[in-house]
Amino acid sequence: MGKVIPNDTCDAGNINKMTSPLLDVHELHKSFPLQGGYFASSQEKCLAVQDVSLSLYEGETLGIVGESGCGKTTLARMLAHIEKPTAGEIRYRGQNIFNFDKKQLKAYRRKAQFIFQDPYASLNPRLTAGEIIAEPFTIHRRDLPQDIDSNLESIMKMVGLSRDQERRYPHEFSGGQRQRIGIARAIALRPEIIIADEPVSALDVSVQAQILNLLKDLQDEFNLTYIFISHDMGVIRFISDRIAVMYRGRIVEIASNQELFENPQHPYTRTLLDAVPRLDKGPQMKREYLNK
């Protein structure tokens, strides 16, 4: 398979010597003006992402964890070139993605795909499942002289959908199946990077496990690189090789999976880990320190 990562216990230093990163995020900032409106001249800004630097290596899963409003979605949207940063760079194989011309950008968008949180809102209700999954081929058809039909069949099979579901509309599917459609759409063009923003948060526990396994299977099959955003520490633990913890727009800790969970350094990481309800603890734990 030509995997770059020897095993799961990868630390960044180790990999650095072996290969250059696929994506390199350098001192990224993003701020939004606070008060909107036509005549607003407010200087107040919401600093959504502040001074974020990280590297993403081929074939790894980088988990990004944090609570709502910490900037993890804004970061993901910049990585996918949906949002532009206020300052800083994101380099894909050495080139700043925000300096890309139209053609380069289209190529980048093919290489970096997005999976959204809400499988109810992110699928066009007027297209059938087949049309949704085939849409990327239509958009990129000039660059991909391929037989869409046979591709569609193999992709649907890969994500666990049957061919006869092709003609159905999104509302006819369950949440888990819709997320499978979203995943099929994302892998359709054989991307290198998949940016998944809370892809299992809206799903039930048993369905969540199915989708997480599917994502790991697809990663093995296509040597995908994942940026996996979640607020769920258990999910992050299961899927990530390395993990970045975000708090108020900044990365406060970045470490390998084992390092982070077994030896968390930043106090916020510890707070986050302590707050997760455990199955093996007794009822009514004291949590006074959280109750300030």
Partner: peptide, 25 residues
Amino acid sequence: GLLHSIPRIEGYYSRDKRLPIIPGV
């Protein structure tokens, strides 16, 4: 099945590890 399908923060999951799932819907 439910208890087993939850990823736990106490556990370490290697790359080839999969969660035991409840099949179907």
